[in-house]
Structures are given as C-alpha cells and as structure tokens.
C-alpha cells in the first residue's frame, strides 16, 4: 500500500488537523467525535445544512463546508458512515434556531446512523428534516437491492440547498428544494483502477490491465459489469445512455452537466470526456447551460469518472449561480 500517512487508524483525524491548519478562516474542526463546521456557525435564523458519510470521497463533504453550502460535515472512518453521536454533536453546534436539513447518501449505514442522529436531535427540540440522495442509475433493480446509491448528485444538491439556506429559505422550503434536486438528478460512474482503503492495505477489487468496471459506486463496490477498455467516445456513451434513459431528459431540457473525477483521473482526461459528453448531449437536443468539471466526489486514488445530469429550472439555476465559498468550491 502506497500512501502518505502515519498510522492507518489515524488517517481521518490527522487529515482533519491538516484541513484546519490549511483553512483557518473558513473551518473549525472538532475531534472525538470528528466534525467540521464553518467558522461563523451557528448562523442564527438560518437553516443549517449538515451532511457527512464515510471518508475517502473528499472534497465531499468536508471540503464543502462554508458560506453558501454546508454548515457542518461529519466524516466517518474511510468508507464507513459516521456514528449518530457525531452527527448529533455537529447538529447541536450549527443549528441556528431555524432547524437543520440533513443530506444523506442512500447507503444502509448512512441512513441508519443519520436516522438515529435525527431522532436524538429532534428529542432535544431541534427541527430536523432529511433528504436522502439516490441518484445512481447503475443500480437498476432497487426492489432487490438496498436502493440506489447517492453519488454525484449529492454535490449538486449540497450546493443548491446550501444557497437556499443562505438566502433565508425556511426548513420546509429548503427541504422541498432538496427533494426537487433529488428527483431531477441522475448519475453513472466507471473505474479503471481500484482504490486501496488504508486499514485494508490492498486494492478493493482486482481489475486486469485491459478491463474497466462500468457502473461502479464511490466505495469501489464492484459495478454493473466488467468490460474491456474502450475509447473515451464509447465510455461516455455507456455512461450517458442509461442516465438519459432513466430520467426522460427531453429535447430542449436545460441541464447541468457534472463531469467528475473519481480521484486519480487527471484533468486532461476529464476535460476530454466532458467535451465528448457535451457533443453527445447536444446531438440529442439536451441543452447544457451549467457545468462542473473536476474531482468533487472521489473514491480515494481510484482512476475513473462519473457523469451527473441535473434538470434545471429558473430557481435551481439561480441557486446554483449564487455565491459559494468553501475550500473546494468557490465563486
């Protein structure tokens, strides 16, 4: 295992320490339980937006803490949901009296742990609403599975609902907007290599030199199918077709296209794929009016990428364009 770390068990805490040192103006960290909050939290009378999940997907979620996005992020161990007490402590720290919206990716562990935290916080009189993101079209049969996974859509949702909260929307309105994003967002990913979890020490799966994994999640769970390497053109098609088929994006629809690196895929390849995707969508009459390209929801040092498409309306577009100032996303 090749990593720049000290003890594998301390990786998350050590990284948080470094994050705090790197962004003294933006972030405050709390250790044991671990969470990250924006320096000016709690912002009174603002809905607090809190998310979290296993570590290893950075910048998600800790890199999105700041004005216009998350009030707090709660990182678990690598690829492991955080525990309810940590989430509860973070909620306490950032709730400004207007209630808290929890953004949860749909994995059994996250759902169960955040559910418990929500109950605990509600028991303390904090208004809590939850949105569960489940945008991964690679999971086809959601009755025979734990349901669709939350992947790239989470980034877009956190940005948009964070802007709504910053603008003063109340908890019900933030929740409605979050549900609207969740309803209109779809993703699909692929991997060329597997990541190595520090406390495991070897790659999460074995992939031959000529193979790629299509429909992979962000925990390096094996994907929909394993096929031979193909050209960028063909890969883009393999990812976008199921997305378009799943949510009927129609001719003339306005969408945000998010081209995401799983970690180790460099900007050249990502931009290349983004360019192919823009042409692919233009040919089908889907109008891309906003874009995000970069490593925003990753799987450690996995090589691979994902696309996310979000249907925009005027309100969502305005919220997307609204200012944001976080370590990983700023405009």
């Amino acid at each position: 295992m090749k990593k720049i770390i000290n003890a594998p068990a301390d990786v998350v805490t050590d990284a948080l320490r470094g994050m705090a040192a790197a962004h003294p103006d933006r972030l405050r960290i709390h250790l044991d339980p671990d969470f990250v909050v924006r320096t000016d939290a709690p912002v009174s009378d603002k809905v607090a937006v809190v998310s979290g999940g296993g570590s290893g997907h950075e910048p998600l979620h800790v890199g999105f803490v700041g004005s216009g996005m998350l009030d707090a992020a709660v990182p678990g161990a690598v690829f492991t949901s955080p525990t309810p007490d940590a989430v509860q402590a973070a909620i306490r720290e950032v709730d400004g009296g207007a209630g808290t919206l929890l953004v949860v990716k749909n994995y059994t562990g996250d759902v169960l742990n955040f559910e418990t935290a929500a109950e605990l916080a509600a028991g303390e009189g904090i208004g809590v609403r939850t949105v569960v993101v489940q945008d991964d079209v690679a999971v086809q049969d959601s009755t025979n599975t734990a349901g669709r996974r939350g992947v790239g859509g989470t980034v877009l949702l956190e940005k948009i609902v964070g802007a709504a909260a910053e603008r003063g929307h109340d908890l019900a309105s933030c929740h409605e907007i979050a549900e609207r994003v969740s309803a209109g967002v779809r993703s699909m990913g692929m991997a060329l290599t597997a990541p190595t979890v520090p406390h495991v020490g070897e790659p999460s799966f074995d992939l031959a030199d000529y193979e790629m994994e299509i429909g992979v999640g962000i925990h390096a769970e094996p994907g929909r199918e394993r096929v031979e390497l193909e050209s960028a053109d063909r890969i883009v098609q393999r990812l976008l077709e199921p997305i378009l088929a799943d949510l009927p994006f129609r001719e003339g629809d306005e969408v945000l296209l998010f081209t995401n690196s799983m970690g180790a895929t460099p900007p050249t390849e990502l931009y290349l794929a983004h360019g192919v995707a823009e042409r692919f969508l233009a040919e089908r009459g889907v109008r891309v009016t906003r874009r995000l390209v970069g490593p925003y929801i990753t799987s450690l040092e996995m090589q691979g990428m994902s696309f996310t498409l979000l249907k925009l309306d005027d309100e969502l577009r305005q919220l997307w364009d609204a200012p944001v100032s976080t370590p990983a996303l700023t405009w």
Binding site: G76, S81, P84, L112, T116
Partner: peptide, 12 residues
C-alpha cells in the same frame, strides 16, 4: 458500538 462502529453494522 453505536458510537464507534458506524457503517451498517454499527446501528444494527
């Protein structure tokens, strides 16, 4: 266990 395991197995 609830406050230290995390994941699916922790709450279960």
């Amino acid at each position: 266990l609830i406050s230290s395991v995390g994941g699916a197995s922790g709450p279960l």
